[in-house]
Simulated assay, not measured.
Amino acid sequence: MREAAGLTATEASDRSKIPRTTLGKIETAETQKVQSGHLDRLVELYKAPYEEAEALRQLARDAGDKGWWWRYRDVFGHGALPDFETEASLIKTYEVATIPGLLQTPEYAAGIFQAGNLTASEHIDRQVEARMRRREILHRHERPPQLWAVIDEAALRRPIGSPGVLAGQLDYLARIGQNANIHIQVLPFSAGAYSGIGSPFTILEFPEPLDPTIVYTDTVTGGQFEEAPEDVEQYVVTFGHVQGTAASTVRSAQIIEGIREESTHGTDT
């Protein structure tokens, strides 16, 4: 807008009475919030159309709202995955060793966190609570995201937590897999080696065309986002291969039910 108005940064700073450094941070997105007074002066100086100016004011107001995950920043950290999951229209996730976080039961999630040994019980409870809050996007009334999960059979058979936890988790998968926006495919052992084996990741796509697709990968210290188009494309292609190798959603439901029955009998004995 400044350039369209034919102004240099120094001229815009002088006329708007906004410090040059502050103006620079606004233009390069180094500041998370824009003061309403500053915004009013800039859109007036640049002679922004009314609708565009109002859209910017609404954007500035929305920037001040913190999502629910802000209260769990000790769990998620900054630049957290839930921030992007909430905005995504399509989530594609591939898991090898565990059930995807968005599909975990509280007991199963607790079993995973307890495996760390160095985590206090109160922090485990908080981690489980935060993970359950993440699941809520799948059941919201307005535009819930489509979730496409490809899960290696190893994750379905790995016992997590106390006896019976796995059976409960598999029961939950069978039920939630019937939702229209949730699609679960199993990669059976019989598939043998396949592209992407051993490297779990999540692809997030967004409804706005200007919002690029991103990829999230788990690490020991937290998580990492991949945004470079060429890197993202490799993950998209790999997910396509993994999805094509996996059993159909109908057959996958049968596989999950069969493993659940096996785990239940194992618990009974």
Rank of each mutant, 00 (worst) to 15 (best):
S89M: 02
T98W: 13
F239A: 11
E208G: 13
T267N: 12
P106F: 02
E227F: 06
V232W: 05
A55F: 09
F225S: 04
E226I: 14
R20G: 02
G266T: 15
G116C: 01
H123C: 00
M132L: 07
R251V: 15
S199V: 08
S121Y: 07
P100N: 06
Q146W: 07
R73K: 15
A247M: 03
D218I: 03
T202P: 03
T238P: 04
M132Y: 06
Y72R: 07
R57N: 01
T28K: 05
E227L: 08
L102F: 03
P212V: 13
T249Y: 02
Y108W: 08
S263E: 14
L56V: 02
V128P: 00
D171T: 06
N181Q: 12
A120G: 12
L173P: 06
G192S: 10
V236Y: 02
A155L: 05
D83V: 14
R2V: 09
D74E: 12
L210P: 00
A55G: 10
W70D: 11
T202K: 04
A191E: 13
S121Q: 14
A12R: 03
T245L: 01
R135T: 14
E153T: 08
P19D: 15
D125T: 13
Q104L: 01
V34Q: 08
E233P: 05
F225Q: 09
A63I: 08
E257S: 14
V232M: 05
I256L: 08
P163Y: 04
D125P: 04
F76N: 09
L204Q: 04
E87W: 06
G161M: 02
Q146N: 04
R41V: 00
G24C: 11
R57D: 01
T105K: 07
A253V: 08
G258L: 07
T22A: 13
E44S: 10
D152T: 05
L42K: 06
R57K: 12
V242Y: 08
S121I: 12
G223S: 09
T245N: 01
E3L: 11
T249C: 03
A247V: 05
V96I: 15
L204V: 09
G79R: 03
T119L: 15
R133A: 12
L90E: 06
D218H: 07
T213I: 10
R157H: 06
G6I: 11
Y94G: 01
H141C: 04
I26Q: 04
Q58K: 13
T219W: 10
F206V: 15
V43H: 04
I137Q: 08
K33M: 01
Y235C: 07
D268V: 07
Q104K: 01
